[in-house]
Design a protein around this nucleic acid. Structure first.
Lengths: 209, 209
DNA sequence: CCGGCTATCTTTGCAGTGTCAAGTTAAATT
DNA sequence: AATTTAACTTGACACTGCAAAGATAGCCGG
């Protein structure tokens, strides 16, 4: 019983031979599998089974497991970029935009813990891949831009921009990682507290009270 | 050719039957294997081979792979604790001790990247294990203590101690993670810069210039 | 000192994994 | 319509973690 093949052009996807668009379907299945399980127990054969194809089908589109995870990580970085910029656009001042990007970063990470782990905690994707490097670089561009635009007196403004960037990045990144790996379970009202915390840190109000 | 069995009491280790102290030897082999490879490609059979025993030998001491990694993670957390306290003891003021703990945290993480990943980025250890939970809690005790002792006007002093703790922890943790996973390779003089960066952030000087 | 006892370790077997090689199907091309 | 070629399947191999059963050797009560 062959699959219907109506899907060749529904979203202008590239390959649409036997399956419809197996490449996209595999990526979707991989992400679903990632959410059900986690990075460490995700199997290529499980992804293939979920997509309804044979265990060797992914090889043709991605080469090997690393190839699939590289492609998935690229998508993840694109979404991380989007998560920051979309939030910052809703704001008014530069300060608000900066903080909004931080919130966007944390929100993406906690909403997609397994994908975030793949992007930042796994050595399985191929980080020599040019597309992946580009996507990863783009994902910190929003923070870079905000820091470049900050006035020299404001928090995270002035001084060495690299230092400021790394400090802000490390903060939201570490915060997200600690949450995702259960190290902050003892914190009361983590959801609400995280909002306040990121605000406080990125506006540098920790020492002001 | 049986192994010599002189080792039964050299460090008051527990089991010393056929091997000498296989439990400790396996943990040592596991850490070595972890440094050669990484968390994701570490195999129980490889650890056993490295220790010179059959592939099923670890099961008797640790139950399964998760058990071995749990034991190894406990050791890691103990060393992380030590890395912070030993550094802070060399300092004078409370402020210096606080910053020294932060440096100790980052130094441990970057000196033992694979072990650090096991402790904070893997779901293979059993975090329901009471000993592991205890060891993990101890590892943040140094920061907790410093924050509790800080004067209300100084950086990371006053206000909600939980917020301060999480902020400081997230910062050093995120910084270490970004370094270990190669996200800061573009930063010039990362070694020297990290010293200055952690200093700047933990003393809250980011907005002062 | 010796026969059982038990903890320690080995051997064997099984299901699952990633990857390669060869085969099969069906769309595209001429 | 025949041929080429991309897309997928099947089968095999080495490796993995794990369970069960067997072998080894230190211990202990007679």
């Amino acid at each position: 019983m062959p699959k219907s093949k109506q899907a060749s052009d529904q979203t202008a996807q590239k390959g649409a031979y036997h399956h419809g668009d197996l490449r996209a379907a595999l990526l979707q299945a991989a992400e679903a599998e990632l959410n059900d399980k986690n990075i460490e127990s995700l199997s290529l054969r499980g992804v293939a089974k979920r997509a309804g194809v044979s265990h060797a089908a992914p090889a043709h589109h991605f080469g090997d497991k690393s190839g699939l995870l590289t492609a998935l990580a690229i998508i993840g970085f694109q979404r991380l970029t989007e998560a920051q910029t979309s939030r910052s656009k809703l704001t008014g001042t530069e300060d608000e935009a900066f903080v909004a990007k931080g919130h966007g970063y944390v929100a993406f990470a906690t909403a997609n813990p397994a994908l975030f782990d793949l992007m930042f905690g796994s050595q399985q994707p191929d980080y020599a891949d040019a597309d992946l490097l580009h996507a990863a670089n783009q994902a910190i561009a929003p923070l870079v831009e905000s820091i470049a635009h900050r006035a020299s007196g404001s928090p995270f403004g002035g001084g060495d921009p690299t230092h400021k960037l790394v400090a802000a990045w490390a903060l939201v990144h570490g915060f997200a990682g600690l949450i995702n790996h259960g190290k902050l379970r003892w914190v009361d009202d983590l959801e609400g507290g995280s909002e306040a915390l990121v605000n406080a840190v990125l506006t540098n109000e920790l020492s002001k009270r």
